[in-house]
Design a protein around this nucleic acid. Structure first.
Length: 121
DNA sequence: AGCGTGACGAGTA
DNA sequence: ATACTCGCCACGC
């Protein structure tokens, strides 16, 4: 049968995979959009970004970040609260400018997607 | 069909 | 550190 309209409460398969990976990310760790795309071996960073923008509210969205570690615009404080609570490695901005929020230390916080019970898609 | 836009990424200046 | 370019892919106009 051909692919007809999806049920309103169903997500595109790709979106479901992205959200699935997002839920696997342990507290205190992060994955970049590009990482998830690579892990899935499907789509690209922008595609993952699109999924998060549309459906990210249902998962720990703050653990899915940009490769440069910049906090999500519009949710900086909320994300920062989670990071501090989870002990996510942060790079305090040089006190050069105020109102300059920290960024995630991607090098330290990045999660490779491997672990007990974790298997590639 | 083209063209701009985006919760991106890497490279270069 | 910032700014800009290019590659990437899906959407909407």
């Amino acid at each position: 049968m051909s692919e007809q309209s999806l049920p309103a409460d169903a997500l595109p398969e790709y979106a479901e995979r992205v959200l699935d990976v997002a839920e696997l990310i342990p507290p205190g760790r992060v994955m970049t959009y590009g990482d998830i795309a690579e892990w899935l071996e499907q789509g690209g960073p922008r595609q993952v970004g699109r999924v998060m923008a549309l459906y990210g509210g249902a998962v720990p969205w703050w653990r899915v970040i940009r490769a440069d570690g910049v906090l999500l615009p519009g949710h900086e404080l909320e994300a920062l609260g989670h990071y501090r609570a989870e002990g996510t490695p942060l790079r305090e901005a040089g006190r050069a400018a105020e109102g300059h929020l920290p960024r995630v230390d991607v090098r330290r916080a990045r999660w490779d997607g491997t672990g007990p019970g974790i298997r590639p898609a």
